[in-house]
Computed example of a mutant assay.
Amino acid sequence: MTGSGKTTFIANATGRTDLKIGHNLTSCTQEIQIIETVLDGRTVRFVDTPGFSDTYLSDTEVLEMIADYLSAGYSKEMRLSGIIYLHPISDNRVTHHATKNLDMFRKLTGEKNLKNVILATSMWDKVTPEEGLNRELELKNKFWSIFIAFGAQYCRQNTSAKSAKQIASMLMDNEPFYLELQEEMGKDNKALKDTAAGREIMSQLSLLKEQQQRELTEMKEMLLRTAAEENKAALAALEEHYKKMMYGMEKTISDERRMNEEAARSSDEKIKELTERIHKLEKKGSCVVM
């Protein structure tokens, strides 16, 4: 998730001091970055992605960005050696966003690839040992139990370069693999919305749209009551909040449209490929029955 310390981890592992690291409540990484270094005499490339529940990007935009990168990697037969999922132990509770993102992460990765995942807790310097231990046990026994059952490893990550390099080294001898999302889009030629991760996003968008519609209806009723009471200050505040809610609804509809348009483009490309194949067969004098 945003704010879990992904870029800080990579800066520690690579020794890079020029990476933009966030130090406030807003997210910092707005695009995928590839940072290369040498560990134990081997070239290692870290892929730094924006997190889900980003400050500026919707989950749809983040997934599209990651999917584009993974699809390009699949076309060039570039596999991953592992994934590091960071969770700040300083969070005093696992939010709805966190559980939602875990579901998204599992579907994007695929159960068969969870053995190549390291679940790492960060920001141990911000909690007492007792607080950290209690949260760690809850994460492992409740929220991460499925991941660990499928072979994911767990470790703590402190702020040192040594810790980051040790965690990265744990993945370097893995057999390279494709994520489930890569195989769905590359091998099976699915549109993003039809992949497991895409279906999760579409389901979330549908639920979010229903919730926003209910809230907008309630807000309209409140605006009418406030207007009748002639409370200008309250009315102005409510109107401003209503505008923000409308923007949120428009963004949700836009994200839904983006996913559907992406699927339509994929269909058009398939039709184009099939048409070209038919033309080639016709030139060779073959007969195609459809």
Rank of each mutant, 00 (worst) to 15 (best):
A149F: 10
V117R: 12
F46E: 15
R277L: 03
I84L: 14
K251W: 05
L70Q: 15
A67Q: 14
E221C: 07
L86D: 12
D48P: 09
T99P: 02
N174E: 12
F143D: 10
D91M: 10
E136L: 03
S27W: 00
L19Y: 00
I35M: 01
F150W: 02
G132D: 02
T217I: 11
S203D: 13
N134R: 15
R45E: 03
N158M: 09
D268F: 09
S163I: 04
N113E: 15
L80G: 11
I35G: 00
G132K: 03
K193H: 03
R199T: 01
R258C: 08
M202P: 04
M222V: 05
L181G: 07
Y56E: 15
I32T: 02
D255Y: 02
R199A: 08
L139D: 01
A237V: 07
K126M: 06
I89H: 00
R135P: 01
M104H: 07
M172S: 04
N158F: 03
L63P: 08
H279V: 04
I118A: 12
A164L: 04
Y154P: 14
I167Q: 09
A149Y: 07
V94C: 04
A120K: 15
F105E: 02
K244L: 11
P88R: 03
E210Y: 04
Y85A: 13
T49L: 15
H87F: 14
G198P: 12
V44M: 06
M104R: 10
T195M: 02
E77Q: 06
Y178G: 05
N189C: 11
N231E: 14
A161H: 06
A228P: 09
L119V: 06
R16W: 09
V62N: 12
G248F: 14
I89L: 08
F147Y: 07
M259C: 00
E175H: 09
G186D: 03
D48S: 07
N113A: 15
I253D: 15
K209N: 07
Q204A: 01
D188F: 13
